[in-house]
């Protein structure tokens, strides 16, 4: 596999985490423009853990996930009382605050005569864990996809579980969900925490993939795209947002002939799908039909 393709696929994998994070919140009916904040927090946390504190990659990623989940919970408690547009704007404001705080964030230590650590708007260089440990680009890609597979398996379990049904109920009609005995506020915060952890892991992987992060990477466009991936790919299955990432990063950004028109095609695609398929390509109805077809024989008995 050539290096370029490995790079593209690694990117697709990493962005899939933040897309899944926004997707989870879409399931519970919340539109967020702020998941890039938890992606950033995860990236900084994991980078600091491995490059400055000498932790292993696994521990660093775990720390990134934890930081994402914790900060999402702290932000979620006040903001999840808001709905629709108000929630969307609150998440956007929070994410911009985080980005600007990272521009002021300086925390450096001297390692082997060099200063390492986040240096405000100049970013955080030399997150060199994968070079120091002789992990090739190919191997790191496999790590990314290994983790993504685990997360996707978790989503598949979620969709079959009571928790997944409750998330979808809240997304469809939260008043009615409350009247089924569901404590809506508690499940909303749980969803936000899981989404924060997912974005945090993605951020941690991203920091190690690029070895260099800076605040301006985590701007609002990343959040808007993360949201759009689920809306394009579909809200019927966790494969939906990944399909969205593949279309955007895998095709539009990576094929040279298309990349100049990326935002035009992407924006047009979003507009078109919102009109003809408001719940995305792989929407609930399609996923249900595929499910019935796959289990066809067994179903006929009923």
């Amino acid at each position: 596999m050539d290096e370029y393709l490995v790079g593209v696929l690694s990117n697709v994998g990493v962005i899939s985490f933040v897309a899944l994070s926004a997707y989870l919140l879409l399931l519970t009916g919340e539109i967020t423009f702020g998941q890039q904040a938890f992606f950033a927090i995860g990236a900084y946390a994991a980078g600091i853990a491995t490059a400055m504190w000498g932790w292993t990659l696994a521990a660093g990623l775990g720390f990134g996930a934890l930081a994402g989940a914790l900060s999402a919970t702290i932000v979620g408690v006040p903001t999840l009382r808001l709905h629709g547009l108000y929630f969307a704007i609150a998440t956007l404001a929070f994410a911009e605050m985080v980005r600007i705080l990272f521009e002021m964030f300086r925390y450096q230590i001297e390692i082997d005569g060099e200063w390492v650590g986040p240096n405000g708007a100049d970013g955080f260089r030399d997150i060199r864990y994968i070079f120091e440990n002789d992990i090739s680009g190919m191997e790191f890609m496999l790590i990314i996809y290994g983790l993504l597979t685990v997360i996707l398996a978790g989503f598949m379990l979620l969709e079959r579980s009571r928790l997944g049904v409750i998330f979808r109920m809240i997304g469809e009609d939260e008043v009615l969900a409350g009247l089924q005995g569901v404590s809506v506020a508690r499940y909303r915060i749980l969803a936000a925490a899981i989404a924060g952890a997912l974005a945090g892991i993605g951020g941690g992987l991203y920091a190690h993939l690029t070895t260099y992060i800076e605040p301006r990477i985590f701007d609002v466009m990343l959040g808007v795209h993360s949201l759009a991936y689920g809306l394009i790919g579909g809200l019927g299955t966790a494969l939906g947002p990944i399909l969205g990432v593949l279309i955007d990063i895998g095709l539009l950004e990576s094929i040279r002939a298309l990349s100049g028109y990326r935002m035009i095609i992407f924006g047009g695609l979003v507009a078109l799908l919102l009109i003809v398929r408001p719940r995305g390509l792989l929407d609930e109805r399609l996923v249900h039909r595929i499910g019935v077809a796959l289990r066809g024989g067994r179903k006929m008995r009923v």
Partner: peptide
């Protein structure tokens, strides 16, 4: 009490205009 706690105490209802979770089975 909030609605969900009334439900667990044994109150259930239907709606005048049907309200179901249409995307669920």
């Amino acid at each position: 009490l909030p609605p969900h706690e009334r439900v667990t105490r044994g109150i259930a209802r239907t709606f005048q205009n049907i309200r179901l979770f249409g995307q669920l089975t």
